[in-house]
């Protein structure tokens, strides 16, 4: 019985680290033998979740973001992005396409829609004043 491979990384929630998080998740996901398209899907979803943590969770203040990932089985990757920011009062509302609290900042309101489209599952749990946790999974080779 081989134990499941996993990783956990904590980094400062600043915009420069968005690309860092994408590189890390790509490097970790490689062991599942994904296609370039599948890797791009995961990178994009992670980029959205990390951006949300920075832009909305911490709103310009800088807190820590935790990115963790786990190889659930030989085809499935799970990824979790957590922040200890202000949280989301109405998760359902936040997940509506084009809903944004920052239209003046040119946020498109498409973050959760992108995560939903590019991953297979998406769970968002949030406690106002405590933070937000986004867990996503993706099955590789689903089209094969």
């Amino acid at each position: 019985m081989v134990s499941k491979n996993s990783m956990r990384l904590e980094f400062l929630g600043c915009a420069q680290n968005e690309s860092f998080a994408r590189v890390v998740i790509s490097a970790f996901a490689v062991q599942l033998g994904p296609t370039i398209e599948e890797i791009t899907d995961v990178k994009t979803a992670v980029s959205e979740a990390v951006t949300n943590a920075i832009v909305h969770g911490y709103e310009g203040t800088q807190g820590m973001v935790v990115l963790s990932a786990c190889v659930e089985d030989e085809h499935v990757l799970s990824v979790t992005i957590e922040d200890a920011g202000k949280g989301i009062a109405d998760v359902e509302k936040a997940m509506e396409p084009f809903y944004t609290t920052q239209p003046e900042m040119e946020r498109s309101g498409m973050g959760f829609s992108v995560m939903q489209t590019f991953m297979d599952t998406l769970e968002v749990t949030s406690v106002p004043g405590e933070g937000t946790r986004v867990r996503m999974t993706k099955r590789f080779g689903a089209d094969a």
């Binding site: 994009t44 040119e106 946020r107 498409m110 973050g111 992108v114």
Partner: peptide
């Protein structure tokens, strides 16, 4: 080489 929804905003 990469774009997420921030690009849509732009």
């Amino acid at each position: 080489s990469f774009m997420d929804s921030s690009g849509i905003g732009v």
